[in-house]
Amino acid sequence: MQWCARKEERDVLIVLLAQGNGVGVTFDVTRISDGNGMAIAITGMVIVFVALTLIASFIGSLPHVLRFIDPYLPAVHDHAGSPPPDEQLPSDELPIVAAIGYVLQQEVLRTASQPSSPKVPNAT
């Protein structure tokens, strides 16, 4: 088996797990240096940090960049998209508006059904 084929008796040798078939798992730190493990790990970690740090820096500077280019390239709202949040009707007001409309309509209908009442304009 490839994963336990090497038997150098150097440095730390710890039996971590003994399987039923008698194969022991050996912990040998020289395998890390032989396989260039430290270099791979450090390179990988540094690149991940650099990439995400650059993204963070870009995001941090983006509002300032946009403020700078605003006079030349103002934000436009196309008709395909929904309006920005400050132009939208808050969703919790919709039931209130509907209730007011319903009450108004009922009031108009009730008034119109009374023969003695003066004629009211069409609700619509």
Binding site: A5, V25, D28, R31, N36, A41, G44, M45, I55, A56
Partner: peptide, 28 residues
Amino acid sequence: PKLILLGAAAQIGIFLTLLGAMAIGFTP
């Protein structure tokens, strides 16, 4: 954006485990 760095720091598990797996005999 500073919270992005936490996403980078958590990746240390990948690289330390890589070393551990190599030490017990897996190929790189």
